[in-house]
């Protein structure tokens, strides 16, 4: 058998091969900037997509934008001027971007109003509805998860309730709530947005099914966390089950739930459209449905871009929140050795 030592010890380093991944090593602020940047990029692409879709839509742009309004030379001239249809495509695009950047969503030729003003006047009721629904969802989810995780009978009851809630269309739940609480018991008003009590039923019908999904995810996450070795360690310190769940488990359970936030925002916005229709509430959803049915393209596009903006902004915030929740993802330079 040979014992030839092929390698001599203490060679100088052979190569100076270097590559750097700037973002991965940049620490928390750079990671945050990176997320914001990619969010803006998506938003820009979404705006561009809507511009392209208007250009590619069958028929000419004027009749697309005019909707079911009677086509008069005056209106046509106004549209041509607003969209710069006499200019080159690129100039139109730049002008379109510039307009949006200034918060100018153009004009609805059916409603004869400025869209930005229309949207901002309808923003508040929708905001109230979505915030209230979100509160319902979160309260339900946290309570259901913490109280039932890992307990056989409570969890199967909660699971059955959640399955039913998820499978119930929000608009039907709204109809049922209306029938029971407004028509029969006469506790809450049937429609409108005059006071807080008018918000209860819409918020419940929109929030409960979202809360059910969130609750399932949260419970699953909590159960997984309670089975991790660290849960055993924490219990070996003498901590009670309740402390273990709230102090240690909930934060772990929140991680998968937070990734759902994008889905949640999307569903709140989508659900608001339907809920407003059921309860006859004013709001963005209402004008969206009216716009779609009357082919009021400028309003539809404005709402679409706005919802993309909200969606992207919320997802970006959630991404950043995730970094704060889970220290393991922060690629800070201070990682210690020994």
């Amino acid at each position: 058998m040979t014992a030839d030592n092929v390698t001599t010890l203490g060679h100088a380093p052979v190569a100076s091969y270097r590559r750097r991944h700037f973002f991965a090593r940049g620490g928390l602020p750079l990671q945050v900037l990176g997320r914001i940047g990619s969010g803006m990029l998506v938003l820009w692409a979404a705006v561009t997509l809507s511009f392209i879709s208007v250009q590619l839509a069958p028929g000419d742009i004027v009749s697309l934008l005019i909707g079911e309004q009677i086509r008069t030379p005056e209106v046509e001239a106004a549209i041509r001027a607003e969209w710069g249809l006499d200019q080159s495509l690129f100039e139109q695009y730049v002008a379109y971007l510039a307009r949006l950047l200034h918060g100018d969503f153009g004009r609805s030729y059916i409603l004869q109003t400025d869209i930005s003003a229309l949207v901002s006047s309808q923003m508040l009721p929708t905001l109230k509805l979505t915030v209230a629904a979100l509160a319902v969802a979160i309260v339900y989810a946290v309570a259901s998860a913490v109280l039932t995780a890992g307990k056989r009978i409570p969890r199967s009851i909660a699971g059955g309730l959640e399955l039913t809630l998820i499978s119930t269309p929000t608009f039907w739940l709204g109809i049922l709530l209306l029938y029971v609480f407004s028509f029969t018991l006469k506790i809450f008003p049937v429609s409108g947005d005059r006071n807080l009590s008018a918000l209860v039923l819409p918020a419940l019908s929109l929030g409960l099914s979202l809360g059910a999904v969130l609750g399932q995810v949260l419970r699953e996450g909590l159960e997984r966390a309670l089975e991790e070795p660290f849960a055993l360690t924490v219990r070996s310190w003498g901590a009670s089950d309740f402390v273990l769940r709230l102090r240690h488990g909930l934060r772990h359970a929140a991680l998968p739930a937070v990734t759902l936030a994008g889905w949640l925002v999307g569903n709140l916005l989508s659900g608001a459209v339907i809920t407003e229709a059921v309860f006859g509430r004013p709001g963005l959803g209402r004008i969206t449905v009216d716009a779609v049915l009357s082919h009021d393209m400028p309003v539809v596009l404005a709402v679409a871009i706005l919802s993309a903006l909200i969606y992207v902004a919320m997802s970006t915030m959630v991404d950043i929140l995730y970094l704060l929740l889970d220290p393991r993802l922060r690629s800070d330079a201070g990682r210690a050795k020994t």
């Binding site: 998506v42 938003l43 979404a46 839509a57 999307g266 916005l269 989508s270 659900g271 969606y311």
Partner: peptide, 25 residues
């Protein structure tokens, strides 16, 4: 992937609504 990001930046139902506003109900 970017294309998918853009498509999913519109909430499902709203995206469907926008498409229907082009095509009609």
């Amino acid at each position: 992937s970017r294309f998918l990001d853009v498509v999913s930046s519109f909430p499902d139902l709203l995206l469907a609504l926008v498409l229907i506003s082009f095509t009609g109900p």
